[in-house]
Design a binder for these strands. Structure first.
Lengths: 128, 128
DNA sequence: CTGCATCCTATAAGATACTG
DNA sequence: CAGTATCTTATAGGATGCAG
């Protein structure tokens, strides 16, 4: 069940832009891919900790889609308690330039939209 | 109403990837931006022709969001019949590397997902 | 620990008709 | 030509509980 839009409609110029976005455009896929890109290999709960607001259900779901698209690999260790590792496939690795482009632009420009969250500054703390 | 996710939650590493995706991740925004990137300036109905499957409502909606995010500019000519031109803003132009990265990856890899739609080959025709 | 099943809500997207 | 308005459907996303 590939989710690439309407492949038989003679993918017009620019359509491949959307195709790529369809693959990585889920609410969490970008971060997941980015984390796997930098950390190489991560277990389920490690990913969960790195994505503080994601629900278990969504993490599983997004991982399964990425796996189904061949971008990540899932390795199950038949132990108890269970242990599952996720990493990028070679194919997934080819997304590196895309992810980095997205991150670079975001780093440079999101402050325009978030009304200045000064990343190089001390995080404002709530005083106890 | 910026749609960047949870800016006050101390945007963790990789979060900006999602932020960028939120801006350009609509079903049609990628193509719209790509078209404006290559054609410079386009009228409403020109965009509509370039995006054969988009509805009028969605085109308007996506254009308004892109405009609200400062990525494109809308120029209305007070004529009759009406004439409206869309183009990228300088800010929108900064997305060029991102869009090109998305397109390059898509061009190189979507055939994996669309089960070979040979773009350099003659389109298979239904015989009349 | 990892994950599936169920139920539910919010948002995106589409169809269609009408207008300055 | 370039929209708006209304209604409907589809999909994404979330909360919670159970299980190997």
């Amino acid at each position: 069940m590939p989710r690439i839009p309407h492949p038989n409609f003679h993918c017009a110029a620019g359509c491949t832009v959307e195709a790529t976005l369809t693959l990585i455009g889920g609410k969490w896929k970008g971060v997941i891919l980015y984390r796997l890109l930098t950390e190489q290999v991560l277990r389920f709960n490690e990913l969960r900790r790195l994505l503080p607001n994601i629900t278990q259900r969504m993490l599983t779901h997004q991982l399964r889609e990425l796996e189904g698209d061949g971008l990540i690999a899932r390795k199950v260790y038949p132990e108890v308690p269970p242990k599952v590792e996720y990493r990028l496939t070679d194919y997934g690795q080819t997304l590196a330039p895309v992810i980095h482009a997205l991150k670079a632009w975001g780093d440079a420009h999101v402050d325009r939209h978030t009304a200045a969250v000064p990343s190089a500054t001390v995080v404002p703390r709530i005083q106890p």
